[in-house]
């Protein structure tokens, strides 16, 4: 039998220290950091970031690279506000990866529709980077992103190159100067989906964003002939452990940390409350 020390040495709550080697303010309320961390993970998975004394928060990975881990973090609470004050060269505590991934390996040859709203675009960037690496394996890839205003748009650099490779559509809830805005239309992302998605055949939709956006988009896609098994969503809940113990992220018996955060829509459809 293992000794007490051996047992505690396998402490899943104990994080490790990683260095930030890139920091960028992404929008008025979010920033992007890159960690020097060779992590074997899937697109859609998340990690926990923490600062001693401040606390821990789950953050989805927004990159897909064997070399590093990128995170786009919105400043909403104590942990994320404190993380925002870090800079290149600083270190933070991390553990992971956790959760399910978008089953991209199984979607070869499919047309992919990616719909993201606000900070929900972050994990989708990981999906896009995966597809970019294996572009020839996928059919048509369309991106639909909605942001509050142009200044809240994420990944403006990447958008430029995505525009060349994919069909990119962007909407803003509100545009101060519509005349000068060339990147997107005024309206909701659902409108973009409605106008541009024609065919559900051989297609899969990947959604991430606020619950209301997911609900409305899924509803719309189903009207266009998508079955709920052709739609993948990412759910967000309060989480403390990431390993199915703390019970906080449970949605009708499903653990967001173990069974999600990526769910096939039919798994959660009835339970979007």
């Amino acid at each position: 039998m293992a000794t007490k020390e051996e047992i505690i040495a396998r402490n899943p709550y104990l994080p490790e220290l990683k260095e930030i080697n890139y920091y960028k303010r992404e929008s008025p309320d979010s920033f992007t950091i890159r960690l020097k961390w060779k992590l074997n993970h899937g697109a859609g998975q998340f990690i926990f970031c923490s600062l001693p004394g401040i606390g821990e928060a789950p953050i989805s990975i927004c990159s897909y690279s064997p070399e590093y881990v990128e995170l786009n973090i919105r400043e909403v609470g104590n942990v994320t506000n404190a993380l925002a004050k870090l800079k290149k060269g600083d270190k933070l505590l991390v553990r992971g990866p956790y959760g399910t991934e978008y089953p991209l390996g199984a979607l070869k040859g499919k047309n992919i529709i990616i719909v993201g709203g606000g900070c929900g675009v972050a994990p989708l960037k990981g999906v896009i980077e995966y597809i970019e690496r294996k572009r020839e394996k996928f059919g048509d890839v369309s991106l639909f992103f909605g942001f509050r205003t142009p200044e809240f748009a994420l990944f403006s650099e990447q958008m430029k190159s995505w525009k060349k490779t994919f069909k990119l559509h962007i909407s803003f809830d509100k545009i101060e100067n519509p005349a000068t805005c060339t990147t997107g239309i005024q309206g909701f992302v659902t409108q973009l989906v409605d106008d541009n998605v024609k065919d559900s055949n051989n297609a899969v939709a990947v959604l991430c964003g606020p619950p209301i956006m997911i609900e409305k988009t899924a509803e719309l896609l189903e009207k266009k002939g998508f079955s709920d098994k052709q739609i993948y969503i990412s759910a967000e809940r309060l989480m403390y452990c990431g390993i199915g113990k703390c019970g906080r992220c449970m949605i009708h018996g499903k653990y967001t940390c173990l069974d999600g955060a990526v769910f096939r829509y039919d798994e959660l459809k009835e339970h979007m409350d």
Partner: peptide, 13 residues
């Protein structure tokens, strides 16, 4: 068995 995880810090901060 649900739980909350939180940090405690000493006065040396």
């Amino acid at each position: 068995h649900c739980f909350t995880i939180q940090d405690e810090i000493d006065f040396d901060l």
